[in-house]
Each structure stands twice: as structure tokens, then as C-alpha cells.
């Protein structure tokens, strides 16, 4: 019977919704699971995750974990994992991707990165994962007794509460890695936005270089109307039309919203890698041969500077 340790990710004192994807993974694996919430303020956040059927919600709350530094977080995760867990899972956010390999190395465990599904067959577990920028899927097996896994948020739907109240238990914070003396957290700079997080939004409106300096001017009314997150192509970010944190793709975020609107995006492989899993894809581009149309469910060959305002008007008229 599996016993999985789910690593919660904290953000501004709250458990990130992305954590719920790892809970879904733990449920699919079966057996029992516990959730480790670590960070300064973890105690207060722990109550958010007691309703998912975990055997325990473990809390490592310490001032030394105020800011994320891998060399401080990984030792506590590894120490807790050694208390009887055979699987450690974290969602494959930038946090999970930074942390999981270091934890795996500490546990002498094999690491299955960024998996899209798990197939359990008795004692055998096969992980499936996107490779080649999503142009192929591979299957892999971990050969060590302990498995470390990062789960793709877009492929594991957020767990729903199952009721009950898991007991909350404090765990000791392990000594940080010696290397932590050589890492100093300086700051975390984040774009301020009232919009939903790119990874969690139901609708994403994404723009390319074609929008030029009018990136926000053209896209904001559409995004506001749809309650959408705003994304961008690499070209738009590189040209300075959109901030880097909006980038969708191999660099940047992987998203899979119910509706993805690609506005003036040509559709480079590196961009498709970050949005191909979207349920419905709309492309608006004046180049009818742009590769984005190969993945779009609905394509409109048009000048975006007239089509997008027209779309806003049509939506206001017919939907709102």
C-alpha cells in the first residue's frame, strides 16, 4: 500500500491551488497520503487542506522558512519523507521543479518529472510524461523503493474536498543544507494583477508581437470582459510589449484553460508546448498559414486591431 507525502506550496500565507493537483495524484496512486505544509505561517494555512482525506496534515512552521530557498526547504521534506513515505509528490510549478530533484537526491530516489498521468497495476506504477515539447509522450518507471514525482497541474484536475478533518501535527524543521550558508534570498518581484493566475484561469487571452505597443490596450478590454488571465508569446515578451512573467510556453507557464485565445501569435513549437492542452483554442491572425491554426479549433484570419475590438463589441452585445 502506497503512502504518499504531498508537498503543499505556500504563497502569501495561503496554500496555492496548484497543490490540489498533487492531492489528486495521491488519490490516484491509492493507499494513504499526508500533506506537508512548510513555510513561515504554515500553521495558519494548514487548516485549508484538512478536508481532502489526508491521514495527517504535517506542519513545519519556522521563521527560517519565510522565503523560499531550496537548501532550506529540501532537508525538512527529505526528513519527513523518511518517516515512512514511499512517494513524494509536488506540483510541477517553478517551486516544485526547483525542489523535487534536490529532495530525490537526498532520498537516493528516482525522480519522475512533470508527469501527466500515473497508471497503477498492483505493485507496478507507470508514469506518463510529455517530452519533445509535448510532441511525444514517454512512459517511465522508477526503480528505487522511494519515488519522487512532480505532477503537471494542467493534467491532474484540482482535488475536491472529501470532507472530514485530517489531524494537524507539527514536525521538526531539519537543519538546512550546509550550502544554505552560501545562498541569500534577496527579493521576490511579482507583477501586480487583479486578474486570475495564468495556471488557474478558465480563460486565457494571449498576445503576440503583432500587438506592438498596443498589447495591453487591445487585450485588456477582452480579458476584463471574459475574466481572463493574460498571456504572451516569447516574441511579445522579448520585444518588451509584455512582461516576462506572462510568457506561455517552454519558458514560462504551461496552461490548459477551457478557452485559450491566441491573438497575433504565430505558434512556434516552444509556445505550443505551453498551451496545446487547452480545451478550446481560438486563433486570430492575419497570416492564414501561421502554424497556430493547426492547433486552433476556431481560426479567424483577420487583422487583430479590428477583429479584437469587434469581438469585444460582439461579446458585450450577445453574452453579457
Amino acid at each position: 500500500m502506497a503512502n504518499t507525502l504531498v508537498i503543499a506550496e505556500l504563497h502569501e500565507g495561503k496554500v496555492r491551488k496548484s497543490t490540489l493537483s498533487s492531492i489528486t495524484f495521491a488519490r490516484q496512486v491509492g493507499g494513504t497520503f499526508s500533506i506537508l505544509v512548510l513555510g513561515a505561517g504554515a500553521k495558519a494555512a494548514a487548516s485549508e487542506v484538512v478536508v481532502f482525506g489526508a491521514a495527517k496534515v504535517l506542519v513545519a512552521d519556522d521563521a527560517s522558512l519565510k522565503d523560499y530557498v531550496c537548501e532550506r526547504f529540501a532537508p525538512t521534506i527529505a526528513a519527513v519523507a523518511k518517516g515512512g513515505f514511499d512517494t513524494v509528490v509536488v506540483t510541477a510549478s517553478s517551486y516544485g521543479k526547483d525542489l523535487a530533484p534536490r529532495v530525490a537526491a537526498k532520498l537516493n530516489a528516482g525522480y519522475a518529472p512533470d508527469i501527466s498521468s500515473v497508471h497503477v497495476d498492483g505493485n507496478k506504477r507507470v508514469y506518463r510524461r510529455p517530452m519533445f515539447a509535448g510532441n511525444a509522450y514517454g512512459t517511465c518507471e522508477v526503480q528505487t523503493p522511494v519515488h519522487v514525482v512532480s505532477a503537471r497541474q494542467t493534467e491532474f484536475t484540482a482535488a475536491e474536498p472529501s470532507g472530514g478533518a485530517s489531524p494537524i501535527e507539527s514536525v521538526a524543521v531539519a537543519a538546512p543544507d550546509a550550502a544554505s550558508a552560501r545562498v541569500e534570498f534577496i527579493s521576490l518581484e511579482q507583477g501586480k494583477s487583479e486578474r486570475p493566475d495564468l495556471g488557474e484561469a478558465r480563460v486565457v487571452v494571449s498576445g503576440g508581437r503583432a500587438l506592438k505597443e498596443q498589447f495591453a490596450q487591445v487585450l485588456d478590454p477582452l480579458a476584463n470582459l471574459l475574466g481572463a488571465a493574460v498571456g504572451a508569446s516569447r516574441a511579445a515578451c522579448d520585444a518588451g510589449f509584455a512582461p516576462a512573467e506572462l510568457q506561455v510556453g517552454q519558458t514560462g507557464r504551461v496552461v490548459a484553460p477551457a478557452l485559450y485565445l491566441a491573438i497575433g501569435i504565430s505558434g512556434a513549437i516552444q509556445h505550443l508546448a505551453g498551451m496545446k492542452g487547452s480545451k478550446t483554442i481560438v486563433a486570430i491572425n492575419k497570416d492564414g498559414d501561421a502554424p497556430i491554426f493547426q492547433v486552433a479549433d476556431y481560426g479567424l484570419v483577420a487583422d487583430l486591431f479590428t477583429a479584437v475590438p469587434e469581438l469585444v463589441g460582439e461579446l458585450k452585445r450577445t453574452v453579457a
Binding site: V69, S94, Y95, F185, E189, R253
Partner: peptide, 12 residues
């Protein structure tokens, strides 16, 4: 460091 939603600055 380019992290989800922004940048995280470290000195190593």
C-alpha cells in the same frame, strides 16, 4: 530566477 508570476532574486 524566472519563477511563476515573477522573478526571485538570490545571491549565491
Amino acid at each position: 530566477r524566472e519563477v511563476d508570476g515573477g522573478t526571485l532574486n538570490l545571491k549565491v
